[in-house]
Design a protein around this nucleic acid. Structure first.
Lengths: 229, 229
DNA sequence: CACGTTTGCGTTCATACTGTTCACGGCCGC
DNA sequence: GCGGCCGTGAACAGTATGAACGCAAACGTG
């Protein structure tokens, strides 16, 4: 189930670049790039008429014929429910706040690294996945989970308490083993304590580079196994 | 800098309770409670005219004169930029998704514990605080931080002794099978013991996401079959 | 209708892993 | 040379899991 994306960006060069990045992200497909509010509305309208609505907009806020957030208001009024990732150089409080209030799910400041956009897209994909269940009955924890996926945990700079070298060592151990490894096992393999290993493994999970799954069968609290993703 | 909140809730008793909880949260003030879409719009309009706009809505989605999300669309069209916390018993995918797309910042399922609402309000307050800097120039880190505060889930939703991962595994098994499954069967399918499976199945029953019905006909104590709801 | 049989439920408890707190040692800046 | 900061690990309390076991509930038989 690919996610159809429309790039709305004033600058043609930037638009091409964004489209390229979107195409490279697994699960995403760039279905078009437009350069104005009017063109975006027409594009969305046409796709919806064809029964193939766009799911996500990569939206620049400075457009020749209006503001990006104005476009959001107009497309909501027209009944479109596409999600929005703002990609803009607008770094003022009021704009960010207003973007949140109209339902922008992610906010990426220009200029950005390709990896940053990628990370935001991956988070969005996970959000979609967590709401793509067949069963209709959701619980509070599932809703919370979905909302949490929308938060961006991509840090270009490592958080306090973590070192690049140790992270590399832990990641290397994890990469070499195909089976899931417990925090303690990773620790001994990487030459650090279980606590430190866990710290870095949790960071890898948060940034989406590892998954964590419990190992059942034995008595006692289940062991958490980490695997690369 | 207190945050002015308007409660929009059909049921007067619930509205009072919500208002009470809001008043108890530090930094928040409940400035009113209304029971319909129309009243909400009039209230917001009046407050704005008085130069004292409402910052946050606690919004029930089932209202006598329309759907809560419809209210969101209309108030956005009127230029209001209040943030929305949905407080509703609507637990279907489509509603949650649409709520996200129109800019609902938190989604709280009824019935809820007072602590849950409190936690959501606190997260919102932290989001506001992280965007309340005087300096206008925001960095990507600060924007990310603000978004993270907005969406982060509170783990306290699950009772002691239960894990999100295991709950997910059990719920997935139950969802995939249309016929009723015994606790033992669910256990083996999910890779956990009957006891653990039962623990989580009972939780699902308690939260209204599964039903439990005895299976008669064979000799011996009847088998309890769990089914999704 | 009563009693034994049979089958699975529900609870208690040992158990092993988790997650957190706090103190130590090293490093950089001053 | 010294003080503060930061990454690491040891100890410990907390917690999720499954084995064992007594009991409950329906059927079968007399």
């Amino acid at each position: 189930m690919t996610i159809d994306v429309l790039v709305v960006e004033d600058d043609p060069v930037a638009a091409d670049a964004h489209a390229l990045y979107v195409g490279r992200a697994p699960g995403f497909r760039c279905v078009g790039a437009v350069h104005s509010v009017g063109a975006a509305l027409r594009f969305l309208e046409r796709r919806r008429a064809e029964g193939d609505p766009v799911a996500l907009l990569l939206l620049d806020l400075y457009l020749p014929d209006g503001h990006g957030l104005e476009l959001v208001g107009r497309l909501r009024a027209a009944g479109h429910d596409a999600d929005i990732i703002a990609v803009t150089s607008a770094r003022d409080l009021a704009t960010v706040r207003q973007a949140v209030s109209v339902g922008v799910v992610q906010y990426l400041l220009k200029p950005f690294a390709a990896a940053s956009l990628r990370s935001k897209l991956e988070h969005y994909a996970r959000y979609r996945a967590s709401l793509a269940r067949d069963g209709e009955a959701l619980g509070q924890d599932e809703v919370d989970q979905a909302f949490a996926e929308l938060r961006s945990a991509d840090r270009s700079t490592l958080p306090k308490g973590l070192t690049g070298a140790t992270l590399e060592a832990v990641a290397a151990v994890l990469r070499q083993s195909d089976v899931g490894l417990a925090a303690a096992a990773v620790g001994t393999a990487a030459g650090v304590s279980r606590i430190t290993a866990r710290r870095y493994l949790e960071y890898l999970v948060e940034t989406g580079r590892a998954v964590r799954e419990p190992q059942y069968g034995n008595v006692g609290r289940p062991e958490l196994c980490y695997r690369p993703r």
